[in-house]
């Protein structure tokens, strides 16, 4: 289990990196490497070139901007979890991070790497989806912005071109009256989710005015539970309402693998979504 041969590049600035990948044919970007490196060791991949982004310091930051938090794509999961800004402004992301891998993998693993790897069972893309994050993507020629909701195109296939780099992720920060919850079911601590559910929910005068529910682990990509969201808005988050809303989420895609059947995933989604909604609603009520 040794990586196959490849050409290695480690640009030290974003510009250099963008120029480089515009000239390389079959380059694979190496962020934290906590997914790419195992795939290389197992020789599932044999890219011609590896472009290592770890020396691009300008992609490691967390800052507050208007009513958003902007995070550099190469910010490690460990730094994120320790950041006072993130802890205060993005509690959902922090909760999601508590389920991500282990101490050693969080040291290297990055937010941008996780979002671009787009493992459907990974936590951070699910949190980013529920938080309606926006992704800034750059190539040597242009910059573009894409909503997290539009980023997944297919199983582990994000809407990003070989000559592009995800540079930063913008999380809008919601006003008071919003509650969050991240629930996950995995067989062991730190494992990828069999099902994860992220909820962001706002209340005004006891009624749900805004709800975003994202689910991971269920299908081929992280998904929004839109029917569930629609069923909540305008309602009071009482037990019967939440039960009914969860029951209505028939728009989730489920897949089967060695860990779980579609039926079990559906069952878990109902259980976890219900728990997450209760928690988020309670928190929203106490915040408003």
């Amino acid at each position: 289990m040794k990586p196959p041969p490849f050409d290695y590049y480690d640009p030290s600035s974003l510009e250099e990196g963008l120029q480089l990948i515009s000239t390389l044919d079959e380059a694979k970007l190496l962020a934290g490497g906590q997914s790419l490196m195992p795939m290389l060791n197992m020789r599932y991949l044999a890219p011609q070139s590896i472009v290592d982004l770890n020396r691009i310091e300008e992609l490691r930051f967390c800052r507050s901007e208007n009513s958003s938090v902007v995070i550099g794509a190469m910010t490690t999961q460990r730094d994120l979890a320790a950041s006072p800004l993130i802890r205060e402004q993005l509690p959902l992301l922090v909760e999601a991070l508590s389920h991500v891998g282990h101490l050693q993998t969080r040291t290297r693993g990055t937010l941008g790497g996780s979002i671009c790897h787009l493992d459907p069972a990974a936590e951070l893309p699910v949190a980013a989806l529920a938080l309606e994050a926006t992704l800034q993507v750059r190539s040597a020629k242009e910059a573009r912005e894409i909503a997290m909701g539009d980023f997944p195109t297919f199983y582990m296939t994000p809407d990003i071109m070989p000559a592009e780099i995800l540079t930063e992720i913008t999380f809008p920060v919601r006003a008071a009256g919003t509650g969050y919850a991240f629930e996950e079911f995995a067989r062991r601590h730190g494992d990828f989710a069999i099902i994860s559910v992220a909820v962001s929910l706002s209340l005004e005068a006891g009624q749900v005015t805004y709800a975003r529910v994202a689910v991971g682990g269920a299908g081929s990509v992280p998904q929004r539970a839109k029917l569930l969201e629609d069923a909540l808005v305008g309602e009071r988050p009482e037990d019967s309402v939440l039960d009914e809303a969860v029951r209505l989420s028939t728009d989730i895609e489920y897949i089967a693998d060695v860990h779980a059947t579609e039926e079990y995933r559906r069952h878990l989604f109902f259980v976890l979504a219900r728990r997450a909604l209760t928690r988020a609603a309670r928190q929203a009520a106490s915040e408003s």
Partner: peptide, 16 residues
């Protein structure tokens, strides 16, 4: 075999 790595074949860890 479908379980050929430690992510698919689950050994107990300290938390379990």
């Amino acid at each position: 075999p479908l379980t050929t790595n430690f992510g698919d074949y689950l050994l107990p860890t300290i938390t379990e």
